[in-house]
Each structure stands twice: as C-alpha cells, then as structure tokens.
C-alpha cells in the first residue's frame, strides 16, 4: 500500500465500487424476478445481490455498499423489493431482513476473505489456480454466502418477533418459507462470484 492510499481509508476507487454495488443491489431488488425451475416461481434477486456484493467487494466495502443501499431506501428512494422505500419499512415485518442485509454482506465478505486468503499475493494467482483446480474455490465462496444466510435468518426472525409480534417459534416457521429461495441464491452468488473474480482478479480481496 502506498502512502497516497493510506491517506484515506476509503479511496476514490473504493467509493465508486461501494456506490455502484449499492446501485446493483437496488437494480436487482426492483427488477422483476427471474422465473426459475419447472414451476417458474419468480425469484427476486435482492439477497443474491447482497451475497454477491460481499463476495466481490469483501467484508468492509460490502458492509458499506449494502449499508448505503439500505440508507437510501430508508430515506425514501423506492429501492427495496417491490419498489418499496421509506422510513415505514422500519416499522414493517420485513425490517429485520432489510437491516440484516449489510451485516450479511459483511459476513459473506469476511468469511470469503478468510477462506480464500491473499488472493493478490505475489504468487501470480497460483493460490487461486490451485483452489480452482481442486474445485474448492466455489465451495469456499458458497460457505461464505452461508454465513450471510445465517445473519439474514437471525435479523429476519428478530424483526418478525419485534414488529409482527410473533412468538419465536412462529417467526421461525414464517422465516422457513424463504429458506429454499435464499439457499438457491447462495449457490448462484457463489457461482457468479467465481466468474467475476476471474474477470477481475485485482478487485477480489483488495481489502
């Protein structure tokens, strides 16, 4: 790291990445879902974007990017799923999910950095190549998204308990409905992140 880089904790490139990934999260949240599987159940890509932001930007920048997305949504820009936005979301039953998103991105990002260390080490990508050859690269990223998945479950259930005043057990059952879709998105995020890391080896794990 050069002196110029150390001067600011968030460089111009970081700021641009944070802002653009917040925009990506917004775009994937409001776009109509992609019909998936034989049943063709449309799947919104909101949580996919959250996991992906963590995997691509890493923990700290992922936290800031999704945090920016949530902040802008709470101010009132309709960037949440279904073109929702505004302070009212905080009182709604989905508040826990929305507030958990930045921490889910952070969890996925930090675990990914921990499981795939030193991706920009001076071995010319040999570490990555070894992980990719053995096929564990995708698996490691998948494990990282599962950390984010757990964070979303915790936040979402807490929100249901507090705002919808469901007892814990019922909140858990209500949350269970989202498990299959979110698990599919964990896998998708990991597979997509592998492609992005290959296209931009430098961005992966610069933090």
């Amino acid at each position: 790291m050069t002196n110029a880089e150390r001067h600011r904790s968030v460089t111009a490139e970081d700021l641009a990445n944070i802002a653009v990934f917040a925009a990506l999260t917004a775009a994937l949240s409001v776009l109509p879902g992609i019909p998936l599987g034989a049943a063709g159940v449309p799947l919104t890509l909101q949580t996919l974007a959250v996991f992906l932001t963590g995997l691509v930007l890493g923990g700290t920048r992922g936290l800031l990017a999704v945090g920016l997305y949530v902040l802008v949504g709470l101010i009132g820009v309709p960037v949440f799923a279904g073109f929702r936005g505004g302070l009212g979301v905080l009182a709604g039953p989905s508040a826990g999910y929305v507030l958990a998103f930045p921490f889910a991105a952070a969890a996925a990002g930090y675990v990914a950095q921990w499981l795939i260390p030193a991706r920009r080490a001076n071995d010319g990508g040999a570490t990555n190549a070894r992980y990719e050859r053995t096929g564990t690269y995708t698996l490691r990223l998948l494990l990282a998204t599962l950390a984010g998945f757990v964070v979303i479950r915790i936040g979402g259930i807490l929100g249901l308990v507090l705002n919808a005043r469901l007892p814990f057990q019922d909140a858990f059952l209500a949350d269970l409905v989202f498990w299959p879709g979110d698990l599919v998105k964990c896998v998708l995020a990991a597979v997509i992140a592998v492609g992005v890391h290959k296209a931009f080896p430098r961005i992966a794990g610069t933090r």
């Binding site: 641009a16 994937l28 992609i34 996919l48 691509v56 997509i192 492609g195 296209a199 931009f200 961005i203």
Partner: peptide
C-alpha cells in the same frame, strides 16, 4: 444473466 451484468458493473465502477 447476472454474471455479465456484474462484470460490466465492476468495469463501470472502475
């Protein structure tokens, strides 16, 4: 669908 979109998004961010 999403992989190329994310890649062009990263390029845009850079």
């Amino acid at each position: 669908l999403v992989t190329p979109a994310v890649i062009s998004t990263v390029a845009y961010a850079q």
